[in-house]
């Protein structure tokens, strides 16, 4: 089956995520972060944050809900069994703090064949409740064994 590229340019409905203190603590703990700004509201406020602040990579928590439906979208038609996560890029802007409501929109930027593999490139853009950009991400998934 030739590589389907119909989904290039498609966007999906926005995904909303409300950031909570315990979720930030849980993430920071498993990574082994020790900066108190991720655990203690007073420490975070002393450092100039509104509340406990999320580590940059917490984007995987608030933006993943925007990627989930995309991976299973039949219009994208990824062969899940042969898929690997090839690459990832994040660019951060405003910090994310507990109490923020983050809205993520996902767009399919590109689908192309290379060396018998299919490359699926998605972009997510996450903004906070004030409309400020917090993170833009590029997710690249690779599917083995396609026909060119």
């Amino acid at each position: 089956m030739a590589l389907k590229t119909d989904a290039v340019g498609k966007s999906w409905p926005a995904y909303e995520y409300e950031v909570g203190r315990e979720k930030i603590r849980e993430y920071a703990q498993v990574i082994g972060l020790d900066n108190p700004v991720h655990f203690d509201a007073e420490a975070a406020k002393s450092a100039g944050y509104r509340d406990i602040v999320a580590p940059p990579m917490f984007v995987v928590v608030y933006a993943a809900g925007g990627m989930g439906p995309v991976l299973f979208d039949p219009e994208v038609g990824m062969n899940f069994a042969a898929m690997v996560h090839g690459g990832q890029e994040f660019e951060w802007a405003e910090p994310v703090c507990s109490g923020d409501v983050i809205t993520t929109t996902t767009t399919c930027k590109d689908i192309y064949p290379k060396d018998g593999k299919g490359f699926y490139v998605f972009e997510t853009e996450s903004k906070n409740q004030n409309g400020d950009l917090v993170c833009r991400a590029t997710w690249t998934n690779i599917v083995r064994g396609i026909e060119e």
Partner: peptide, 30 residues
Amino acid sequence: GLYVMGLVAKAATDEAGGDPRALKRLSVQF
């Protein structure tokens, strides 16, 4: 993979003193 990327982010952030605002961009290949 994103857990290991989290460790890479930690190493980069720690080098800049540990404040999460220090990390502006990170791209990786798995």
